[in-house]
Simulated assay, not measured.
Amino acid sequence: MRIAVIAGGVGGARFVRGLREAVRRASDIDPLAGAAIDVIVNTGDDWWLAGLRITPDFDSMLYTLSGQNDEQRGWGRVGESERVAGELQAWGVTPEWFTLGDLDLGTHIARTSWLRAGETPSQVAARLQQRWELGVRLHPATDQEVDTHVIIAGDRGAAAGSREIHFQEWWTRYRAALPAAGFVQHGVDRAVPSEGALDALLDADVILVAPSNPVVSIGTQLSIPGMLEAITAEPAPIVGVSPIIGGASVRGMAEACLAAIGVAVDAGAIARHYGLRRDAGLLDGWLVAEEDAALVDGLEADGFAARAVPLWMRDLDTAAALASEAVAFALGLSS
């Protein structure tokens, strides 16, 4: 069996780690046994800093799956130091609100060197994955630069005095506290899905939408021309996992992103925002938390296959159990 996952960020990385563990634990009679996992990773958070190409979501995946992630901070490399970052800030090359660890800088320097030598982001991604045994294959959603910017509303609203800042500044510096009037993916009109992403979708028996930010992680990928069509073109069942539990985001500041596009912070609202595949949307099925079980009947009335399951990924066991539930649900839809 081949499983394709649409993901981004820390929540997506933890879900994929759980899926990998579920495959490792599967018995010979389990459909998950020997399953191959391909992950299509959001690139909308990427940006240029100090002449280096920074790819936060891809690196979260790379470090989490390789065991290099700093689990205490939730991002960056374990055992990190920040001497170079201090020098860069002293020279005024990088802002004080975005610190690059020394080990992390090594990744960015290698990536940028290969990019400047003419390699594509997909080729660079393949080289980065050769260093560690990940147990999955990671593919950037696109090889074109699609950087997300945030429209910051002026004092009198979005139409008066609004300005744009890069998503990383809004997210990291301001902690999403500045009122956002919307998001712009620069370059998306010229983007196409990466070859690796298309191949993964073409071969998939199951497609899972990770519990990642529905606006800037999943939404950015769906905005790439041809991506939604590629995801939904094949007969593989598509099941999403809610990033909202009990009316609150599991991680990060997704509430601010949802507010900017007028979507309620609610597991049912997220499913309806994605839409049904049969109505030119994304989903066949949707997993909500046990805390949101009351939403299942309404979702089913709207045509979604829905189920309430434990969604908290507190450790590897719970993450693996969630991933197993998602695959089993999808296979049930397929049959």
Score class of each variant (00 low, 15 high):
residue 99 T to D: 02
residue 119 E to C: 03
residue 99 T to G: 05
residue 152 I to Y: 01
residue 133 E to Q: 13
residue 169 E to G: 03
residue 107 T to N: 05
residue 106 G to H: 07
residue 119 E to F: 12
residue 152 I to Q: 02
residue 155 D to Y: 02
residue 121 P to A: 05
residue 109 I to M: 12
residue 109 I to W: 05
residue 166 H to T: 06
residue 124 V to D: 04
residue 105 L to T: 01
residue 132 W to N: 06
residue 139 H to R: 10
residue 120 T to Q: 02
residue 108 H to L: 02
residue 124 V to Q: 10
residue 105 L to R: 00
residue 106 G to I: 09
residue 107 T to D: 07
residue 120 T to F: 02
residue 143 D to H: 10
residue 136 V to K: 11
residue 106 G to K: 06
residue 107 T to P: 00
residue 141 A to N: 05
residue 151 I to D: 02
residue 113 S to N: 03
residue 121 P to F: 06
residue 93 V to Q: 11
residue 136 V to S: 05
residue 149 H to T: 13
residue 133 E to W: 06
residue 94 T to G: 06
residue 123 Q to W: 01
residue 151 I to K: 12
residue 129 Q to S: 11
residue 120 T to G: 03
residue 98 F to G: 01
residue 129 Q to L: 00
residue 144 Q to L: 12
residue 162 S to G: 01
residue 134 L to T: 01
residue 122 S to A: 14
residue 143 D to E: 15
residue 96 E to V: 09
residue 138 L to D: 10
residue 98 F to I: 03
residue 137 R to S: 10
residue 120 T to C: 01
residue 130 Q to L: 14
residue 93 V to C: 05
residue 146 V to P: 15
residue 166 H to A: 08
residue 98 F to N: 04
residue 113 S to Q: 06
residue 148 T to A: 15
residue 170 W to Q: 08
residue 116 R to W: 01
residue 130 Q to N: 10
residue 132 W to Q: 08
residue 158 A to N: 09
residue 106 G to V: 08
residue 169 E to N: 06
residue 95 P to V: 06
residue 157 G to S: 08
residue 101 G to S: 05
residue 113 S to T: 14
residue 170 W to N: 06
residue 125 A to C: 12
residue 157 G to M: 11
residue 104 D to M: 09
residue 144 Q to H: 15
residue 99 T to S: 12
residue 162 S to N: 05
residue 156 R to D: 15
residue 105 L to A: 01
residue 149 H to Q: 15
residue 96 E to Q: 12
residue 114 W to F: 11
residue 114 W to N: 01
residue 118 G to I: 04
residue 137 R to L: 00
residue 124 V to P: 10
residue 113 S to W: 09
residue 107 T to L: 14
residue 101 G to H: 04
residue 141 A to R: 01
residue 127 R to W: 10
residue 138 L to F: 05
residue 163 R to F: 00
residue 103 L to E: 10
residue 94 T to M: 12
residue 139 H to L: 08
residue 144 Q to T: 15
residue 122 S to Q: 10
residue 165 I to W: 04
residue 150 V to C: 10
residue 130 Q to V: 03
residue 134 L to E: 08
residue 110 A to I: 11
residue 120 T to E: 03
residue 146 V to S: 12
residue 123 Q to N: 06
residue 129 Q to W: 01
residue 142 T to D: 13
residue 99 T to K: 14
residue 94 T to E: 09
residue 96 E to I: 03
residue 145 E to R: 14
residue 136 V to A: 04
residue 142 T to H: 07
residue 142 T to E: 13
residue 159 A to L: 15
residue 170 W to A: 11
residue 103 L to S: 10
residue 133 E to V: 11
residue 123 Q to A: 14
residue 115 L to P: 00
residue 170 W to D: 08
residue 147 D to K: 09
residue 144 Q to V: 15
residue 165 I to C: 04
residue 110 A to C: 02
residue 98 F to Y: 09
residue 130 Q to P: 04
residue 165 I to G: 02
residue 99 T to I: 13
residue 152 I to C: 02
residue 101 G to Y: 03
residue 162 S to D: 00
residue 141 A to Q: 09
residue 103 L to N: 14
residue 132 W to E: 08
residue 148 T to V: 11
residue 145 E to H: 13
residue 126 A to N: 07
residue 116 R to T: 00
residue 111 R to V: 12
residue 128 L to C: 05
residue 96 E to N: 13
residue 106 G to P: 00
residue 101 G to P: 13
residue 154 G to S: 08
residue 133 E to C: 05
residue 162 S to C: 03
residue 131 R to S: 06
residue 151 I to E: 13
residue 149 H to P: 00
residue 115 L to D: 00
residue 108 H to G: 03
residue 117 A to G: 01
residue 101 G to E: 02
residue 158 A to M: 12
